[in-house]
Design a protein around this nucleic acid. Sequence first.
DNA 1: TAGGATAGCTACCCGTGAGTATGGTCCACG
DNA 2: CGTGGACCATACTCACGGGTAGCTATCCTA
Lengths: 258, 258
Amino acid sequence: MPSNRPKAGSPQAPSPAAARDDPPSPWRASRERLRDREVKREAVIRAAARAFNRKGYHNTSLDDIAAALEVTKPTVYYYVSNKEQLLFECFVAGIEGIRAAFRDARSLAVPARERLKAVLRQYGTAVASEFGWCMVRAEDQDLSPDMSAHIKAMKSEIDQGIRRLLREGIQDGSIHPCDPKITAFALAGALNWIAHWYRETQSMTGAEIAEAFIEVFESGLKPRPEISNEDPTCRNPKSSSSRPGAPRSGRSRASSRR
Amino acid sequence: MPSNRPKAGSPQAPSPAAARDDPPSPWRASRERLRDREVKREAVIRAAARAFNRKGYHNTSLDDIAAALEVTKPTVYYYVSNKEQLLFECFVAGIEGIRAAFRDARSLAVPARERLKAVLRQYGTAVASEFGWCMVRAEDQDLSPDMSAHIKAMKSEIDQGIRRLLREGIQDGSIHPCDPKITAFALAGALNWIAHWYRETQSMTGAEIAEAFIEVFESGLKPRPEISNEDPTCRNPKSSSSRPGAPRSGRSRASSRR
DNA sequence: TAGGATAGCTACCCGTGAGTATGGTCCACG
DNA sequence: CGTGGACCATACTCACGGGTAGCTATCCTA
């Protein structure tokens, strides 16, 4: 599973991994071979993810993916068994980041709302990554029953994780009482939807968007009397200094979408 | 454009529109014919929407749609020019409900937050309707450039409408200051996502889900010191009687998703 | 240096599904 | 009565794309 590191522009050098002059050990070559293979396999999956991202699963042929890698279709089949598996791998690559987020958050000694926020930040990052599309839009309809079942199970795991954090937050008082099921749907929906409109060339990163969303979800739409002092400025749009941490995205309204 | 009235169970009677005994006018027959045609055309579009909804656009063949109507493919082509147009019509049918929501809300003499809520309620209803899938998932990638442009324009119109309501709400003090762009994305995302998980057989209607989402978005996650009127039972998840209208779907957490 | 694994290509197969050519039936109208 | 148009079916074309067969080249190990 390719962990989603940034890795700039052009996918992989045409010439495979320049030769180094380490002292040759008897097994080194074959190990090198295997590593190369894994690298190439990941490149295939990343190329698929980018193609799916741009043109959609069904509008992407394996010839397209092969062409993006400057190879031919059978070469792609040399690394993956079929198109469906390609989608599946992309999905797994995307969701792995979220699962990691839950693992990380579990060890945090803070109120549940903070743990939830940490998860959501990474969630947003994952959805805005190049695997976001695949993670979000991998449809059971496009997959064989067993793959579909796997994916459903993972999605459900994420969903249950969010619900659990919400329940814990309600318990420890850090989260306003609410229906965990519905709230989890709302949270996940807002974040998942990022994959529909986000493009890498955007001014905000996925994490920044997640941060801004969290701000929205935390404070709510109702005008909120500033917690500490009761009176203040609830009529003034620009006060709002409820939390200093949020980037808040300077020019808020000027840009006319997309 | 078929407005989404409920219309129970079996889609359309096999026998076309029972004959009535009005006084026959010379043009009646041909008018009747035309009406029939429109009815049948809508039936085709509804059938397509249901099929797309169940199996996805690309996994639905026109033979499937024809079979659902108990006719053959050329018959479908008699009413629509191609598959793409079918998707487009479904999209328009779905989004028309939302545009209507904005029109309705404009005439309401209430604070902007209330107008926004009214819009979101209808939004949720539309997304949960049988055209929801098409509206939400009609991808520019699957459509010719000009259709894609149309759809983008409509989506943008909805987005701008939400942003406008948010700005107005911030102005009139009924909405907590926030970034309208990001907030609109969050709201629309959460609601759009309903189309991914909602099935007609669910215990809640689309409107009820929207209502519950609104509750979440209004109050926010942070524990909220009860404001003047709304004292009661802050710790009890089941209270939340902010509005009497919402049925709230009894068993909230027991059902383990889907 | 033979033999085998690795890696990639050219050239094909074939199912599927969008869209159509053609023709038949029924009904309205002259 | 017969002509034209609305409506629908049978039966086709055809391109696209997933997947494969089989050849070739290179490098590693024996």
